[in-house]
Simulated assay, not measured.
Amino acid sequence: MTNSTTDAFLPGPRYRLSPAASGPLTGLSFAAKDLFDVAGTPTGAGNPDWARTHPVPQAHAWAVGKLLDAGADLVGKTVTCEISLGILGFNQFFGTPANPAAPGCLPGGSSSGSASAVAAGECDIALGTDTGGSVRVPASLCGLHGLRTTHGRISFAGVCAQAPSFDTVGWFTRDAATFAKASAVLLQEPIPAPMAAPLLVAEDAFALADAEVREALAGAVALLGRVLGHAPQGVNLGPAGALVAWSAQRNILQRHEGWRTFRDWIDAANPRFAFNVARNLTLAAGFTDAQAAEAASVRQQVLARARGLLEGGAILCLPTTPFTAPPLGLPLAALDALSERISQLTSFAGFAGLPQLSLPLGHAGGKPCGLSILAWHGQDTKLVAIAEAVERARH
């Protein structure tokens, strides 16, 4: 099997692993971001020197094994931003996967290849990771269902880490029914029947989005309210300026952890990096333990606010991304500004360890944009059930 026309898969010949037995996912195919170990195949982590300096894995990552055991066929490894450091989906060494839902535009990252492959119909399910938004963002920009799981809910065994207190496993599909099948396997819990729940609308998050995105998602919010049996209720995630401040503190803590993860390898291997990745690692190396401790204290504030909003069973919604897919070829300064805007919407769930599911419910200017639903810790399957109910209500 040759590489796809989307450049979603790693360059070179592809392979197929078929399961030993049938299961609930028989007849479906999946791909895995090149952070997930596949036994006997090098893990490249999006960097030209990672595989050279790490042994070939002898066992599958936990999530890869679960999908194979459930009967799905693995059809290849997908491109990722270098060592998962990126939110818009480009890779200087292996190329930028196409965005089939918005040709000529970025797919979102760092699980960009996984989202591209699913959006193009080259597989039914794809595994990604979400540390700062790397499943949620490409799901929004490519018009997919994409879940960031509750932190710690899914085993990270056999996956290249970045920032351990943020890292989560997630996945993409094109439709809610397939998403529910995959989710039941990976979450190891049946998907419940949807139940009525209060719907909270994060007005400060919507205020950060482009007007066309707000308009595109207005009908989706109303539909969600009907599905949940409650009129949408406006709330603010925090006081004025909180989303910008929380984003900055999340950035410090995540980068501090990322530097601790990669510094020994960098010191030993002196690997090659694209400029933007090398620059961000250099900045991360400068954050002090005191700065990280201050950011961790801010995390406790975000967690307390999330508990107050969601622990009682409410569902929170907000735009997944503040804009639709940006065009290819933007200068680095423009990409940095876009990444900062995205972070203001993704940091709430990341800091609080919440599950967040992006639903493909909006289109603006001919390009998709996602509406996210969030719930309290451990309520991942509740979000999946809502996604199924919303899709039924639309058809």
Results as ranks from 00 to 15, higher is better:
residue 1 M to Y: 06
residue 2 T to H: 14
residue 2 T to V: 12
residue 3 N to I: 09
residue 4 S to W: 04
residue 5 T to V: 15
residue 6 T to I: 01
residue 8 A to Y: 00
residue 8 A to N: 02
residue 9 F to C: 14
residue 9 F to Y: 07
residue 11 P to R: 11
residue 12 G to E: 04
residue 15 Y to N: 05
residue 18 S to R: 13
residue 21 A to E: 04
residue 23 G to E: 01
residue 24 P to S: 14
residue 26 T to I: 11
residue 27 G to E: 02
residue 30 F to M: 05
residue 33 K to A: 15
residue 39 A to F: 04
residue 42 P to W: 06
residue 45 A to E: 03
residue 51 A to I: 03
residue 53 T to I: 02
residue 55 P to T: 12
residue 58 Q to P: 01
residue 63 A to H: 00
residue 65 G to H: 00
residue 68 L to W: 04
residue 69 D to G: 14
residue 75 V to W: 05
residue 75 V to F: 01
residue 76 G to D: 01
residue 80 T to N: 11
residue 84 S to F: 00
residue 88 L to F: 01
residue 88 L to D: 04
residue 89 G to A: 09
residue 90 F to L: 01
residue 95 G to R: 10
residue 101 A to M: 13
residue 103 P to N: 13
residue 106 L to G: 06
residue 110 S to I: 00
residue 111 S to E: 03
residue 117 A to M: 00
residue 117 A to P: 01
residue 121 G to K: 11
residue 124 D to C: 05
residue 126 A to G: 03
residue 126 A to Y: 00
residue 130 D to H: 11
residue 131 T to S: 12
residue 134 S to R: 07
residue 134 S to H: 07
residue 134 S to K: 04
residue 136 R to D: 10
residue 139 A to T: 00
residue 139 A to C: 05
residue 139 A to F: 13
residue 142 C to Q: 08
residue 144 L to Q: 08
residue 147 L to W: 00
residue 150 T to D: 04
residue 152 G to A: 13
residue 154 I to R: 09
residue 159 V to H: 00
residue 163 A to N: 03
residue 163 A to M: 08
residue 170 G to T: 04
residue 173 T to M: 02
residue 176 A to D: 00
residue 178 T to C: 13
residue 184 A to S: 15
residue 186 L to I: 14
residue 193 A to G: 12
residue 200 L to R: 06
residue 201 V to A: 14
residue 202 A to T: 10
residue 204 D to G: 10
residue 204 D to I: 11
residue 205 A to I: 03
residue 207 A to S: 10
residue 215 E to N: 12
residue 217 L to N: 06
residue 219 G to C: 06
residue 224 L to V: 09
residue 230 H to C: 14
residue 231 A to H: 06
residue 235 V to T: 08
residue 237 L to G: 07
residue 237 L to W: 01
residue 242 A to Y: 09
residue 245 A to V: 06
residue 251 N to R: 12
residue 252 I to G: 02
residue 252 I to L: 01
residue 261 T to V: 01
residue 267 D to Q: 14
residue 268 A to V: 04
residue 279 R to K: 15
residue 282 T to D: 11
residue 288 T to Y: 01
residue 294 E to Q: 12
residue 295 A to T: 01
residue 295 A to L: 08
residue 296 A to K: 14
residue 298 V to E: 03
residue 302 V to G: 05
residue 304 A to F: 06
residue 304 A to E: 11
residue 305 R to W: 13
residue 310 L to G: 05
residue 312 G to P: 05
residue 315 I to T: 02
residue 316 L to K: 04
residue 317 C to N: 07
residue 320 T to W: 12
residue 320 T to G: 07
residue 334 A to R: 15
residue 341 R to L: 15
residue 345 L to V: 12
residue 347 S to L: 06
residue 347 S to G: 07
residue 349 A to W: 02
residue 351 F to I: 00
residue 352 A to Q: 10
residue 353 G to A: 14
residue 355 P to R: 11
residue 355 P to A: 10
residue 358 S to V: 03
residue 358 S to E: 07
residue 361 L to H: 10
residue 367 K to L: 15
residue 368 P to W: 02
residue 369 C to L: 11
residue 371 L to D: 07
residue 372 S to R: 12
residue 373 I to G: 03
residue 376 W to G: 15
residue 388 E to V: 09
residue 392 R to A: 13
residue 393 A to V: 07
residue 395 H to E: 06
residue 395 H to I: 12
